[in-house]
Design a protein around this nucleic acid. Structure first.
Length: 498
RNA sequence: GCCCCCAUCGUCUAGAGGCCUAGGACACCGCCCUUUCACGGCGGCGGCACCGGUUCGAAUCCGGUUGGGGGUGCCA
């Protein structure tokens, strides 16, 4: 692999703390991080909390937690600090004000006292008349407060708007899409009536002050990029490179949303029992070809080494869980059994199914049983249901009706023989191998039954289900006494029923 | 309405004019392995949205149509 020396890049992800962290944030973070690592640069987390109305207090902590869970760690941010802080926009209000003043002084921005009602009426009128020029009508431009106050639709606390010039260049380069064209902007508000900047001003000021070299964001931002570039020009700054990523979609192809898709909530994956490495690998495959050609499994390190903006597919990928689930099973199978047992335990504690700290006996049982379910798991959350028969007292085991229905006329003598065989296994060698050899000899060869019939009856007695983890391993984990109790219970039940 | 972005199997994608009667993965179906279920192996189903150009030759280039998405906020 030839690697041209790349200049260290500084990239950031800038989520808004307005609710549960979105999967799109993780998607953008992954690509940001990959390029930062490839160039030996930095990845920065900035909290964009300029919307006081939608602000959710707990959301910032959830952003930290879920991004860290996924292994997407930042070099600078509100929690770890850094040379360009503060990294929360609500703490940078004093930073923005001088630039607003400068833009007004230079004639690039102006105060607007129009009330929300007037603006809304204006928008409705534009919609009704189906005009092609939407946007603010510049009623306030060039007027003093007194002049404007004499007109209708006035409000006392003004906003500040950009004065978009005619003939603005609407094209700009994008590292993913080449030369782009965007629609002519409106006189965008840059400072709200409450003194907070809007995204458009804050993102430009912060990205410049924080030395951001590449702005990686969703394609929904393409249309506002000319406004941002104009701000860079007015302020005398060099604009960064832009990379507009495709948008993740719901099954119906709309932009992925929490309402239509539970997977839009990043925390959902953790709750469902997905492994962070599986989700990370899956996200790497969204809009990006497999790093290793036909093999779609790839580590983050390999992704970083091969990363190339030009390979990003601008088509918005549908977020379909099938492949993620397969990847999850793959990563589960690749774990050391002890590590898997640990992950399952953590999952059970995190989801409140097990107390914290968990019962040591339950953990021990899980650790012994995990090897036999490892290749049968697709989600961590499936472990406990598959092992439920091990966590059930012998006297409480319920034999399912469909399992009972598989029993034929041979069942009573199969169970009688099995009891005898299991009873005779020396306590010290109650292993899967010993049990299989003894039961195969006694039931399959001795009684001349098909393995399916013989072991099926034993399975029903031991697990109470038609389908279970491997029978002999299950018996070894369960222990001799429990096995005998369960075999006798079913034998007795059949005898009673005649 | 107006503007912008996009268009290969159901889904994720390979493909940058001849290597493509379009390759892989997931899903689905069948077979094998097998004490159940899985895992694994083998095979199958299935696609270049449409119409015009350009070219000896187009999935690949150009135009249009259609379709989908996004934007059009004192949200981000």
């Amino acid at each position: 692999m030839t690697t041209t020396a790349l200049k260290p890049a500084r990239l950031r992800v800038a989520p808004s703390p307005t609710g549960d962290p979105h999967v799109g944030t993780a998607y953008m973070s992954l690509f940001n991080l990959a390029y930062a690592r490839q160039t030996g640069g930095q990845f920065i987390l900035r909290i964009e909390d300029t919307d006081r109305v939608r602000y959710v207090a707990d959301s910032e902590r959830q952003i930290f937690d879920t991004l860290h869970w996924l292994g997407l760690d930042w070099d600078e941010g509100p929690d770890v600090g850094g040379p360009c802080g503060p990294y929360r926009q609500s703490e940078r209000l004093d930073t923005y004000q001088p630039y607003v003043d400068q833009l007004i002084a230079d004639g690039h921005a102006y105060y607007c006292w129009c009330s929300r009602e007037r603006l809304q009426a204006l928008r409705e009128e534009q919609e009704r008349s189906k005009t092609s020029n939407t946007g603010y009508d510049r009623l306030c431009y060039g007027k003093t407060r007194e002049e404007r106050a004499a007109l209708p639709g006035f409000t006392d606390s003004p906003v500040v708007r950009m004065l978009i010039p005619d003939g603005l260049d609407l094209t700009f380069p994008d590292v993913i899409r080449g030369q782009l064209t965007a629609p002519p902007p409106d006189d965008q508000v840059i400072l709200k009536a409450d003194g907070f900047p809007t995204y458009h001003l804050a993102v430009v000021v912060d990205d410049h002050l924080m030395g951001i070299t590449h702005v990686v964001r969703g394609e929904e931002w393409i249309s506002s990029t000319p406004k941002h570039i104009l701000l860079y020009q007015w302020l005398g700054w060099e604009p960064p490179a832009f990379a507009h990523m495709p948008l993740l979609r719901n099954q119906d192809r709309s932009k992925i949303s929490k309402r239509k898709n539970p997977a839009a909530r990043l925390a959902w994956f953790r709750e469902q029992g997905y492994l962070p490495e599986a989700l990370r690998n899956f996200l790497q495959l969204m809009g990006y070809p497999p790093v290793h050609g036909d093999d779609e499994v790839a580590s983050f390190e390999d992704f970083v080494a091969a990363f190339d903006w030009a390979k990003i597919n601008p088509v918005g990928p549908i977020f379909d869980l099938d492949k993620l689930t397969w990847l999850n099973g793959h990563y589960i199978r690749s774990l050391e059994p002890a590590e898997l047992a640990q992950r399952i335990t953590t999952h059970l504690v995190e989801t409140g199914q097990w107390p914290s700290p968990p019962d040591p006996a339950a953990v021990d049982l899980l650790t012994r049983a995990t090897p036999m379910i490892q290749e049968r798991l697709t989600l961590l959350s499936e472990a406990l249901p598959k092992l439920a028969f091990l966590y059930t007292a012998d006297s409480d085991l319920v034999v399912a009706d469909d399992a009972l229905a598989t029993l034929n006329a041979d069942a009573p003598r199969v169970l009688a023989a099995a009891i005898d065989i299991v009873h005779q296994v020396p306590a010290g060698s109650f292993t899967a191998e010993t049990l299989e050899a003894a039961l195969r000899a006694g039931l399959v060869e001795g009684l001349e039954l098909k393995a399916r019939v013989a072991f099926g009856a034993v399975r029903t007695a031991i697990a109470g289900q038609k389908v279970s983890p491997p029978l002999f391993d299950s018996m070894a984990v369960l222990g001799q006494a429990s096995c005998l109790a369960r075999l006798r219970a079913l034998a007795g039940r059949l005898a009673t029923q005649g």
